[in-house]
Amino acid sequence: MPGPEESSAQLSHVDAGGHVRMVDVSEKAETLREATARARVRLQPQTLALIERNQIAKGNVLEVARIAAIMAAKATPQLIPLCHPLPLTHVGVSFELQREQGLILIETSARTTYKTGVEVEALTAATVAALTIYDMCKAVDHTITLEQAYVARKSGGQHGLVEFSPESEAPTP
């Protein structure tokens, strides 16, 4: 196991003494930063049909999930310790229904012009959208699973463009 000195070189949220800290971004330049995250929800095809026909008792599942995702992105600093509050300029949410596979594919995007990235905000949005779908449909489907939450793309900052797909298993700069 690495000592405190080794950890601080690798983990930006750990100081030289091994103590947790919020990263100081004061000296970083503000740049346009964007991130896209994806998650998917697997459910019974008949549950998906109920969602499409807006027949889930709790309401319009996808629209409630969209609002929950946007709210979650904005609330990320209250949910994730040491996460910087960001002036988000955009949060987008889309859904793709794959009827035969019983899947809802969720894609979220977040954008800011700031000193640190928006990957966590995009990922929080995607996972909260998935959780909302689960919550709204759990009474009619006890087999729902949340799958493959990941950051698919990020741009801005010192690393530039990075894309990832679970099929590739490695980010591509």
Rank of each mutant, 00 (worst) to 15 (best):
Met136Leu: 10
Gly117Val: 11
Glu27Arg: 12
Glu147Met: 07
Leu48Met: 01
Leu82Trp: 11
Ile144Asp: 00
Gln148Asp: 14
Ile104Ala: 11
Gly157Glu: 03
Val61Asp: 02
Asp135Asn: 12
Gly17Gln: 05
Leu161Thr: 06
Pro77Trp: 01
Gly102Gln: 05
Arg99Val: 02
Pro171Gly: 02
Ala37Tyr: 06
Ala170Phe: 14
Leu103Ala: 07
Ile51Pro: 04
Ala9Asn: 13
Leu50Gly: 01
Arg40Ser: 01
Glu100Trp: 15
Pro166His: 15
Thr89Ala: 12
Val64Thr: 13
Leu123Glu: 10
Ala69Cys: 11
Gln46Gly: 02
Pro2Phe: 15
Ser12Tyr: 15
Leu32Gln: 09
Gly17Val: 02
Ala29Met: 10
Leu32Val: 13
Leu79Pro: 14
Arg42Ser: 02
Val14His: 09
Leu105Lys: 13
Ser165Val: 14
His142Thr: 04
Pro173Gly: 03
Lys58Cys: 03
Ile133Glu: 03
Ala57Leu: 03
Val91Ile: 08
Leu131His: 08
Val64Tyr: 13
Gly157Asp: 00
Gly156Thr: 08
Glu100Asp: 14
Ala49Thr: 04
Ala152Arg: 06
Thr124Ser: 09
Ala122Ser: 03
Glu169Asn: 14
Lys58Phe: 00
Val118Glu: 08
Cys137Lys: 01
Val61Cys: 03
Gln158Glu: 05
Glu100Lys: 15
Ala126Gly: 00
Ser12Asp: 15
Ala68Cys: 03
Leu123Ile: 15
Ala57Pro: 00
Lys154Gln: 09
Met136Lys: 05
Leu86Thr: 00
Glu63Trp: 14
His90Leu: 10
Glu169Thr: 14
Phe164Leu: 03
Arg66Ser: 13
Arg33Trp: 00
Ile51Asp: 04
Ala139Arg: 10
Gln46Val: 06
Met22Val: 02
Ser168Lys: 11
Ala125Tyr: 00
Leu123Val: 10
Pro87Asn: 11
Ala35Phe: 00
Tyr134Lys: 12
Ala49Cys: 07
Glu52Gly: 07
Pro4Asp: 10
Pro166Leu: 14
Ile67Asn: 04
Ile133Gly: 09
Pro2Cys: 14
Thr47Pro: 01
Ile70Cys: 02
Ser8Gln: 15
Ile106Met: 09
Cys137Ala: 02
Gln101Phe: 15
Leu82Ile: 12
Ala122Tyr: 02
Glu119Leu: 01
Leu103Phe: 08
Arg38Thr: 03
Ala29Tyr: 04
Ala57Ile: 09
Glu27Thr: 11
Thr116Ile: 03
Arg53Phe: 09
Thr132Asp: 05
Gln44Ser: 05
Phe164Gln: 04
Arg53Ala: 07
Leu161Pro: 03
Glu119Lys: 01
Arg21Asn: 04
Ser168Leu: 11
Ala35Asn: 09
Arg21Met: 08
Asp135Thr: 10
Thr113Leu: 13
Thr127Met: 09
Leu123Ser: 09
Gly3Phe: 01
Leu62Trp: 01
Ala152Thr: 13
Gly117Leu: 08
Met1Ser: 15
Leu79Gly: 14
Leu105Gln: 13
Arg111Gln: 08
Gln101Ser: 13
